[in-house]
């Protein structure tokens, strides 16, 4: 049995709005084994970012978060206290965000921002913390790291800032790294550099990585396992090769078909778009959330609960028509 770095069952996040309760995450199961990369992929509003922020315990107080099981880096947090989570955060679990420009404080030096956390959490002295900061900056490919500790974020390019963000996340020597769209704000040439870096770090440090993205290209490049999220639930979970070679859920199929692939998709041909739009998540949702947009939906798709069909190694899809899908 491999050691689980993250094991969440039936995670639910609800946010009260003036139009009613927004059920943004509606029962998500996530498992990440040690040293694995799980990509959580989905479109805007599917709840993928909220899932990540709730794992980090960074949601505002008015958000209601429940789960049947919540274990992270070997600790049971099901009946978690904020204090317990806060202790894990910045040490065993770290997060990097989409926009490195706004995630770094422009008025503090890089050195200060990198060392502050570990000096507090691990009671390191300034020189010890700085030594580690230099090590981490070197690790993420910032040249001449010692000299750059005294510089401010504006002296770095976007790609370098994201490297610094990653260095900052590594400062507490985490076992689990959560990255929310870490390359979306970057140019493509920089994106592949950052993804390469994340892959190397993961291999070298034995990190587990939860990467949240909307970009299936990123998923294909870096994931071991993929969880496709739709309307607050995981529609399909599969190893990356299997998912791209033979997607089983109609939504996953639709997503993959909608992307033009140079050299494969005939130029100027009509792309098989998924019609319609994501359903609103305020209030209760009956049956399969995708059925209004699904080509093979039938009457049985409106029934609760949508059956989950599991296979080996944690693979599953949630679709009542799964038999017909695989055929």
């Amino acid at each position: 049995m491999t050691e689980m770095m993250l094991d969440i069952r039936n995670l639910k996040v609800s946010i009260p709005t003036d139009r009613g309760l927004l059920n943004a995450v509606r029962g998500v199961d996530l498992q990440i084994a040690k040293g694995e990369t799980l990509c959580l992929v989905g479109e805007s509003g599917c709840g993928k970012s909220l899932t990540a922020t709730s794992i980090m315990g960074l949601l505002p107080r008015y958000a209601k978060v429940t789960s049947d099981r919540f274990e992270m880096v070997g600790q049971d947090l099901t009946t978690k206290t904020d204090a317990k989570l806060a202790k894990l955060r910045g040490r065993d679990v770290a997060m990097i965000f989409q926009d490195p420009t706004s995630a770094l404080n422009p008025t503090l030096t890089i050195g200060r921002q990198l060392t502050e956390g570990v000096m507090r959490h691990e009671k390191l002295s300034r020189s010890e913390a700085e030594a580690r900061a230099i090590e981490m900056l070197d690790r993420v490919g910032i040249a001449n790291p010692a000299a750059r500790l005294t510089q401010y974020p504006h002296g770095f390019s976007g790609g370098q800032r994201q490297r610094i963000m990653i260095a900052s996340a590594l400062m507490g020597r985490p076992k689990l790294l959560i990255a929310d769209e870490p390359t979306t704000a970057l140019d493509v040439t920089i994106q592949s550099q950052i993804l390469t870096l994340l892959g190397e770090l993961q291999a070298d440090l034995g990190l587990s990585l939860l990467l949240i993205t909307h970009d299936l290209g990123v998923v294909a490049a870096i994931a071991n396992d993929v969880a496709v999220m739709y309307a607050g639930r995981i529609a399909e979970r599969a190893p990356v090769a299997g998912l791209f070679a033979a997607p089983r859920h109609p939504y996953t199929k639709g997503l993959l078909a909608a992307i033009p692939v140079p050299g494969v998709t005939p130029r100027g041909s009509e792309l098989p778009a998924i019609p319609g739009r994501v359903p609103g998540l305020i209030g209760a949702l009956r049956g399969c959330a995708f059925r209004d947009r699904c080509a093979i939906a039938g009457a049985e798709c409106a029934h609760d609960p949508v059956p989950r069909i599991s296979a080996a190694q944690g693979q599953f899809i949630e679709c009542v028509k799964a038999g017909e899908v695989t055929a």
Binding site: P275, G276, R277, P279, G280, D292, R293
Partner: peptide, 8 residues
């Protein structure tokens, strides 16, 4: 057109 479930 399929984008119809809009709240107007």
């Amino acid at each position: 057109m399929s984008d119809v479930n809009i709240e107007t």
